[in-house]
């Protein structure tokens, strides 16, 4: 019998190793798997490369993971957001590496990684500093830059509904990077607001097919990052 449900957040993240590349879903707080990130902080893995659109805010979630000096490199499109102070401080102190990627290129690099495409050409960033040192090529009179797909050891993703096979649905704009990150990681770890019986999700509306998912854990009342930040909380509590 296939059952990808695990019993605790700690169990969900137990195999994450030092030096791992981890994709973390979310656009700002929407879709950010805060409880899984906090479990990863408790678990202790370090020297991580994190692929995520932003760098978290306040002193919780991804920002807290960075603040604990567990991330050696961020691959992201927008590392400064309202209330994000941790990353800028460490970056200016030279304590964390940044690979800045245009948002659409980031999405496509993850999609390509998951789809078995090693590299692709995109027009985004041509003639800008972000294309420097990269192979460029002209197709039909337009210049494109070669970008490589990204694969990860793990992805941490937040979803709405999951079943024991790992079929997932999402909520509103919390979907963002979740579906593609599930495809691009060797091990995808998903926190679901609710785990339902197999068959309870109409096959027509499954967004992430279960084949892309390895572990699911129910977090029925996930915290809102903005509320934790407003309360000036720091993780570990």
């Amino acid at each position: 019998m296939i059952n990808k449900t695990v019993q605790s957040l700690a169990e969900a993240v137990q195999n994450i190793h030092d030096g791992a590349t981890i994709m973390i879903s979310g656009f700002g707080e929407a879709g950010s798997p805060i409880e899984l990130i906090h479990a990863l902080i408790d678990q202790g893995a370090k020297d991580l490369t994190v692929v995520s659109n932003n760098t978290g805010s306040g002193n919780v979630g991804l920002a807290a993971l960075i603040e604990q000096r567990r991330v050696k490199k961020m691959i992201c499109s927008f590392p400064r957001t309202a209330n994000s102070t941790v990353f800028p401080e460490l970056y200016n102190a030279g304590e964390i590496e940044l690979e800045l990627v245009p948002q659409g290129t980031l999405a496509e690099r993850i999609r390509a990684g998951g789809a078995g495409i090693p590299a692709f050409y995109t027009p985004a960033s041509v003639n800008t500093p972000l294309a420097k040192g990269k192979e460029c090529r002209v197709f039909n009179g337009i210049e494109y830059v070669l970008e490589k797909g990204i694969k990860a050891d793990f992805s941490l993703v937040k979803c709405e509904l999951a079943d024991r096979y790992g079929n997932l649905t999402y909520h509103a704009t919390a979907r963002n990077f979740g579906p593609i990150m599930c495809t691009a990681a060797k091990t995808s770890i998903v926190q679901a607001r609710k785990i339902v019986e197999a068959g309870a999700i109409n096959p027509e509306i499954v967004v992430t097919p279960g084949i892309f998912v390895n572990h699911i854990i129910e977090v029925s009342k996930p915290a809102n990052e903005s509320e934790l930040v407003a309360q000036k909380l720091t993780y570990p509590w």
Binding site: P79, F87, Y91, L100, Q103, G104, T105, A124, S125
Partner: peptide
């Protein structure tokens, strides 16, 4: 701190 988002 460089940040580009989706502009490019």
């Amino acid at each position: 701190i460089p940040a580009v988002g989706g502009a490019m």
